[in-house]
Simulated scan of single mutants.
Amino acid sequence: MRVAFAGTPEFARVALERLHAAGFDIPLVLTQPDRPAGRGMKLQPSPVKQFAQAHGIAVAQPRSLRLDGKYPDDAQAGREALLAARADVMMVAAYGLILPQWVLDTQRLGCLNIHASLLPRWRGAAPIHRAIEAGDAETGITLMQMDAGLDTGDMLLTERMAIRPDDTTGSLHDRLAVLGGRLAVEALEMAACGGLVRTPQPAEGITYAHKIEKAQAQVDWSQPAAVIERRMRAFDPFPGASTAFGDEAIKLWRAQAVRADATPAPGTVVAVGNDGIDVATGEGVLRLVELQRAGGRRLPVADFLRGLPVAAGQRFGAAA
Rank of each mutant, 00 (worst) to 15 (best):
M161I: 15
V197H: 10
D247S: 14
D25L: 11
D154F: 00
F11Q: 02
E248G: 03
D105G: 11
G273V: 08
E159C: 12
R130D: 10
V14Q: 02
D167V: 04
I57K: 03
A209S: 12
L99F: 15
I141W: 01
L19H: 09
V103F: 07
G296D: 11
L99P: 09
S117R: 03
G205K: 11
A85P: 10
V272W: 11
D174C: 04
K211A: 14
K70C: 02
A125K: 00
A15T: 12
E159H: 13
V272N: 03
R13Y: 03
V178N: 10
H55N: 15
A262T: 13
G170C: 01
R2T: 13
R35H: 09
G40R: 10
V285A: 04
A318P: 01
P47N: 04
M146G: 02
M90L: 13
K214F: 15
D88G: 10
P300H: 06
D88Y: 08
L99W: 09
F24L: 00
Q216G: 14
G23I: 08
G110I: 06
A134F: 07
P100Q: 14
R182G: 10
F5R: 02
V301N: 00
A81P: 07
Q256R: 12
R121F: 01
G240Q: 07
A209G: 13
R231A: 02
G96C: 13
L176S: 13
P45D: 15
L99C: 11
Q223I: 04
D73M: 04
R164N: 14
P300F: 02
I228K: 02
L196F: 05
E10N: 08
A225M: 03
A294M: 09
M90Q: 06
F24H: 03
D166R: 03
A187C: 10
D147T: 14
R2K: 15
G180H: 06
M144P: 05
P120M: 05
A93R: 00
G313F: 06
I228A: 09
D74A: 09
A116S: 12
T168E: 05
Q53G: 08
F304H: 05
D261M: 15
V285C: 05
R35S: 09
L119C: 14
A162V: 12
G181I: 11
A234R: 03
L19S: 02
Q201M: 04
I128Y: 05
M232R: 02
F235E: 01
G317Y: 03
S222G: 14
T139I: 08
